[in-house]
Amino acid sequence: MVTIEALSFGYRADEPIIDGLDAAFAPGEVWAVTGPSGRGKSTLLYLVGLLLTPWAGRIGLGGVGAANALSDHERSRLRGAHIGFVFQDAVLDPARSVLDNVTEPALYAGMARPEARRRAGDLLERFGVRLRADHRPGEVSGGQAQRVALCRALLTAPSLLLADEPTGNLDADSAGIVIDALTAAAHADGATVLIASHDERIVAACDRVLAL
């Protein structure tokens, strides 16, 4: 369960983007975070992902009542072990292979390398990019790169999956694969999935909507 209590945040001191927000996201649910540009959809994801520190309020995560109050080291450990990110751009490391990109979170999550490689192989197979395992990101298409990013986000079987406009740069087929993967992570694996998006296909596929 992910809980938000009286959450406030802004990038400028006198301009709150999120002001006193309360919400609760249960395991196995897929949430669409929607709203006009500048209303804090992505910001909410980064707050819940512990990459931003709120002005006020509490974020309950992974059994921790106020995860936002933890030290950077503890928040990073929590992020590495329990949170997966998918960005609009795949944000892959161009210097390492597709397989090594997928296994990258293992270092920060404390996952053994053989286990990480085995699981990465399974995920690449599941998302149809196993044959690209030894390729560099520059050698795969945009849709394939986003699927690789999805594999990377799922490597540690996170209890919280955060996706920021994950289909923004994809064609319809690739977008469908990503949407299916995100919903499967919630419905099959029990993860909480938050997706910030304008994409109607995504909103339609989600269980619930949080409009900002």
Binding site: R75, R77, A81, I83, V91, E104
Partner: peptide
Amino acid sequence: RRDFGRRRALGASRAD
């Protein structure tokens, strides 16, 4: 910058 931003999102602490 993107390299370090990605690492932070994947769980790297500032000390890392």
